[in-house]
Amino acid sequence: MSSIMIVEDDPKITQLLQAQLEKYGYRTTIVTEFDEVLDVFQQNKPELVLMDVNLPKFDGFYWCRQIRMLSNCPILFISARESKMDQVMALENGADDYITKPFDYDVVLAKIRSQLRRAYGMYANQEKERTIEVEGLVLYPERMELVRDQQKVELSKKEALLLDLLMSHYPRVVSRERMLEKLWDEQFVDENTLNVYVTRVRAKLKDLSLSGAVETVRGEGYRLKATWGDSHEAIHT
Score class of each variant (00 low, 15 high):
176 R>L: 09
129 E>W: 09
58 F>E: 12
93 N>A: 11
57 K>Q: 10
61 F>E: 03
103 F>K: 12
126 Q>C: 05
114 S>A: 14
178 R>K: 12
129 E>Q: 13
197 Y>T: 03
159 E>H: 04
101 K>S: 03
185 D>F: 07
105 Y>T: 09
197 Y>R: 02
161 L>Y: 01
64 C>H: 04
184 W>S: 02
64 C>K: 02
80 A>I: 10
119 A>Y: 02
75 I>R: 00
63 W>H: 06
153 V>Q: 03
155 L>F: 10
59 D>P: 12
169 H>K: 11
118 R>T: 10
100 T>I: 11
59 D>Q: 04
81 R>M: 09
168 S>A: 08
186 E>H: 12
190 D>Q: 07
173 V>R: 00
169 H>D: 11
184 W>V: 12
88 V>I: 14
135 E>T: 09
173 V>W: 00
119 A>M: 05
130 R>Q: 15
55 L>D: 01
169 H>N: 11
168 S>F: 12
108 V>N: 03
92 E>H: 11
154 E>I: 09
77 F>L: 08
108 V>D: 01
171 P>M: 08
168 S>W: 11
169 H>W: 11
75 I>A: 00
170 Y>L: 01
154 E>C: 07
106 D>Q: 15
193 T>S: 10
172 R>I: 05
161 L>C: 06
131 T>V: 10
153 V>K: 06
163 L>F: 09
69 M>D: 09
175 S>N: 03
171 P>S: 03
130 R>K: 15
98 Y>C: 01
88 V>G: 05
124 A>Q: 14
110 A>L: 10
122 M>F: 12
182 K>H: 08
195 N>V: 15
193 T>A: 07
95 A>D: 00
175 S>I: 05
120 Y>C: 03
133 E>Y: 14
176 R>A: 12
86 D>Q: 11
125 N>Y: 13
112 I>P: 00
118 R>E: 10
136 G>P: 05
166 L>D: 00
122 M>K: 15
73 C>Y: 10
98 Y>M: 02
94 G>Q: 04
173 V>F: 06
86 D>R: 08
135 E>N: 12
192 N>S: 11
182 K>M: 10
103 F>S: 06
108 V>T: 09
101 K>H: 01
79 S>W: 05
155 L>H: 05
67 I>T: 01
142 E>I: 08
107 V>A: 13
152 K>Q: 14
107 V>K: 15
122 M>Y: 14
107 V>S: 13
183 L>E: 06
94 G>K: 00
64 C>D: 08
159 E>D: 04
145 E>V: 07
109 L>Y: 15
189 V>S: 01
178 R>N: 06
57 K>A: 07
131 T>C: 07
114 S>K: 14
82 E>N: 08
55 L>Q: 02
181 E>K: 14
181 E>W: 06
67 I>V: 13
75 I>V: 15
111 K>A: 09
121 G>N: 12
179 M>I: 14
62 Y>M: 07
67 I>R: 00
155 L>K: 05
77 F>V: 10
179 M>A: 06
171 P>F: 13
61 F>A: 03
150 Q>M: 07
171 P>N: 04
181 E>P: 07
71 S>V: 10
190 D>N: 09
94 G>D: 00
197 Y>I: 09
123 Y>S: 15
195 N>F: 14
113 R>H: 13
192 N>K: 07
141 P>C: 02
133 E>G: 08
194 L>A: 01
116 L>V: 05
144 M>V: 04
132 I>R: 03
182 K>S: 09
110 A>Q: 14
97 D>F: 04
126 Q>W: 07
196 V>T: 10
90 A>D: 00
